[in-house]
Design a binder for these strands. Structure first.
Lengths: 245, 245
DNA sequence: GAGTGGTCTAGACCACCGT
DNA sequence: CGGTGGTCTAGACCACTCC
C-alpha cells in the first residue's frame, strides 16, 4: 500500500470532485470555512490548506469578507507548465498516443551536457531517440540523454516512459526548465516527422529536475505545430523586494 | 501608502534576500524551523508558510527528517509561466526595452472575441497594435483587444503598459492562458518585425485573466525566435483522483 | 535515538465586504 | 453591523533521516 492520505488531501480531493461533478458550478459560492471545517470534522486551518491548494492551481478564488467561489475559467490540466508528459497531453486531446523507438545508444557526455547534468565530462550517457504519435501521426521527435547509471540493466531498449525508468531508479522527475524556440523543419527532421521542408516546428530544450531540483535528464524535442495544442497557464509573479547591493 | 506587509511576507522576503546575497549558498542547509521561528520572533506555523512560498516557486527544497535546503538550480524569474510582462523579460536579459505604437482603434467584438471575453457580440473593443523592441530591434508584435469600458477617457493612445491601464480601471491582470504555435513570417508581419519571409516565429494566443479568472483582455502575439529566450518552468502536476462518474 | 520536517488542533483577533 | 476570509499563536504528536 502507498502512504495514507492526509486530512488536507482528502478534503482537497473531495472539493475537487465536487467541482467536477457540478455540486459547485462555476462562479458559485462555497460554504464558509467554519462550516466546511465542521462538516468535514477538521479544524479551520486544515480547511484553509485544502482550499489554498485549489486556489493556487486556479480552481477556486477567495474574496476577503465575501467568501470562497468556484473560478469562472477553470485552468487546463494538461498544460506545458503543469505536466511533463506529452503522452498524457495527447490523450487529453482525445487522441491515441504511441511511442516509437528510433534509435538508442551510449555516448560520452560532452562539455555542455556534463555541465547541464552536473556530472564529469566523459560520463557515459544513455541516449534515446523517439517519436510520439497522435492517432498514428508523428507529432513529437525527441532525443533524451541521461546518465547510464540511472538506467537499470535490461531496460536499455526503452519502449515505455523514461520518467518511469527514472522513478524506479530513485530519480523521480518533479519539474523541468524548458527553453522554447520556433524553427523550420528540414532534412532528417522533416522526414522523421513526415512534414514538408519549411514547416514550422516548436523546438524545446529541456532540463528535467528531481524534487531537489537536481538535473537528471536532458531533452531536445521538436513538436509539429498543429498536432495538438500547447497551452501554458501563466501566473503573475509575486512582488519581490529589490536585490540587495 | 499601500498595505502593511504581513509577518509571513517579511520573513519570506528576508529569506529570499539571503538566498540572493549568498548568506545561504546553493545547496546549503537552512536553520531548522524552530530556530528560524525563534530568531524571527514568530511561530513555527508562520515560518512554515514563508518557507512554503519559496519551496513552491522552486528556491528551497524540504526533506522530511533532514532539513530545509537551498535548491541547486534556482528557477528563472522572468519566465513565461511566472510573468505576464515581456518588457521585464527583455530587461532581465540585459537589453533596453521599448514599446512602439503601430495602430489603435475601436471595433465591434466578433463572435469569438465576445465568447472569449464573456461579453455580448458587438460590444465595443479597444484594439491596440504595438511592437516591443530589445536594444532597438523588433522582437514582439502584438494585437491586444479589451472592452472599451475598461479604458478610461484620455488614455486611448496607449504608450504605456496596458496592464497598468487595466489595473487603474480595477481589472488587475493576475494570470493568463496562452496557446503556443510556431509559424513562419510573411508579408506585413515580416516587414513589421524586420525579418525575412520564412523566418520562424512563435505565435501566442492569450487570454488575460483577473484574480477571479474572469477574462479581461485578448492578445495575439508574434515573437522573433532568437531575440530573447522564452523559458518555461514546468512542474509535475499533483496526483488527482479520477473524476466521479 | 536525536533531530527535523509533516500534520493537525483550538482559539484569538484583524481586515474587508455587503446590507 | 454581521459574516467572511486573513493572519498568527502555542502546543501536540507523527514520520522520516541520519548517525
Amino acid at each position: 500500500m502507498s502512504r495514507r492520505s492526509s486530512a488536507v488531501e482528502r478534503l482537497r480531493d473531495q472539493l475537487y470532485g465536487e467541482l467536477l461533478d457540478g455540486t459547485y458550478p462555476s462562479g458559485s459560492k462555497l460554504p464558509n470555512e467554519d462550516e466546511m471545517a465542521e462538516r468535514a470534522g477538521v479544524s479551520r486551518a486544515t480547511v484553509r490548506e485544502a482550499v489554498t491548494g485549489l486556489v493556487e492551481t486556479g480552481y477556486l478564488t477567495r474574496r476577503q469578507g465575501a467568501g470562497t467561489f468556484v473560478a469562472r475559467n477553470l485552468p487546463r490540466r494538461h498544460s506545458l507548465d503543469q505536466s511533463v508528459s506529452y503522452l498524457s497531453m495527447i490523450r487529453d486531446a482525445g487522441m491515441e498516443a504511441r511511442l516509437i523507438l528510433v534509435d538508442y545508444g551510449v555516448q560520452a557526455a560532452t562539455e555542455s551536457d556534463a555541465a547541464a547534468l552536473a556530472v564529469a565530462p566523459g560520463t557515459q550517457l544513455m541516449s534515446v531517440e523517439r517519436i510520439r504519435t497522435a492517432d498514428g501521426r508523428p507529432v513529437v521527435y525527441s532525443i533524451d540523454r541521461l546518465p547510464l547509471e540511472y538506467v537499470p540493466e535490461g531496460e536499455h531498449d526503452i519502449e515505455a516512459s523514461l520518467y518511469e525508468v527514472l522513478e524506479r531508479a530513485g530519480h523521480r522527475v518533479d519539474g523541468a526548465g524548458a527553453q522554447l524556440t520556433p524553427v523550420v523543419a528540414e532534412g532528417r527532421l522533416a522526414r522523421l516527422l513526415a512534414v514538408e521542408v519549411g514547416t514550422p516546428l516548436l523546438h524545446i530544450e529541456q532540463v528535467d529536475l528531481d524534487r531537489d531540483r537536481h538535473p537528471v535528464m536532458l531533452s531536445s524535442e521538436w513538436h509539429v505545430a498543429d498536432a495538438f495544442e500547447l497551452h501554458v497557464n501563466r501566473r503573475r509573479a509575486p512582488e519581490r523586494p529589490p536585490p540587495r547591493r
